[in-house]
Design a protein around this nucleic acid. Structure first.
Lengths: 141, 141
DNA sequence: GTAAACATTACCCAAAAGGTTATGTTTAAA
DNA sequence: TTTAAACATAACCTTTTGGGTAATGTTTAC
């Protein structure tokens, strides 16, 4: 089905997990089943998401028994956009903003520039929000 | 499927059609098949959309042969939000902003207020954009 | 060698978008 | 009074994809 919200559950989970990892003391790591339980995410789903984050070099992992995951990126530089982008986020207010979209009205349609502008604004904001300001600690919930 | 963009095709078509109707000289009307052709929308789909707009008292129609549709609302007061809302638009940046959504992290999660704020900003903008500023005339495309 | 973690792929299912089809009902004009 | 061409409205269909599960590796501490 289509996205009910701008952000998919998967993207939301990625934000949560990254924010939680950002709160771990330097050098510590946590295994995915535990992380998933703490954040109310199914363990298998969480595992797949973490894998994507690792491929993007946002997280890293220690393999084997007693292994786990941790944040690799610098939370002061890592933005919401970075994580969302990794999980396939596309800011797309309207289909007509897509590259391959051929809109016959283009020149007469003023909605186009409205959406374009809004998209740009949101994108800039997402890039400004850094994880150091969004740390998620267990004692807070 | 889930929405690929914030605005669905149906909502986009509703905006186009309303913007076109806003450009018709007072007292004139246009039949839906013609309107649909001019705006590159399937005629049956257009018909269903116009019907929704009529129920919301945004458009009105003249029935029978040689009938057609026209804008009923005042384009200076009619906003993008009004039309989108009629076609089922929900500003929803994240599921966690839904009334019935129970988020276990609520108190510790700072993303919530970020999405809430963005949502509010966009909503206000959509309400500010009036159709008198978005008139779509055939000679322009 | 085995337990318990990470790694990766393949698959499934419900829901919604984005239409089309079908069948009215109304009205101008022949 | 018949008919064409419009609006009115419900029902149906098909594809996509979000959101998740299952299955099967592979790695490493003990």
């Amino acid at each position: 089905m289509r996205r009910n919200s701008f952000i998919s559950r998967e993207q939301d989970y990625a934000l949560r997990m990254t924010a939680f990892l950002a709160g771990l003391p330097k050098g510590e790591f946590i295994n995915v089943p535990t992380l998933a339980r703490k954040l109310f995410i199914s363990h298998k789903f969480a595992s797949r998401i973490v894998h994507k984050l690792k491929k993007a070099k946002i997280t890293d992992s220690v393999q084997g028994k007693y292994g786990g995951v941790f944040l690799k990126a610098d939370p002061k530089k890592l933005s919401m956009f970075d994580v969302l982008d990794t999980i396939g986020f596309k800011v797309k207010f309207n289909d007509c903003l897509n590259k391959n979209f051929k809109c016959e009205l283009m020149f007469g349609c003023k909605f186009h520039s409205f959406w374009l502008n809004e998209e740009k604004l949101l994108l800039e904001k997402l890039k400004k929000q850094k994880f150091s300001d969004y740390v998620l600690r267990e004692q807070n919930f």
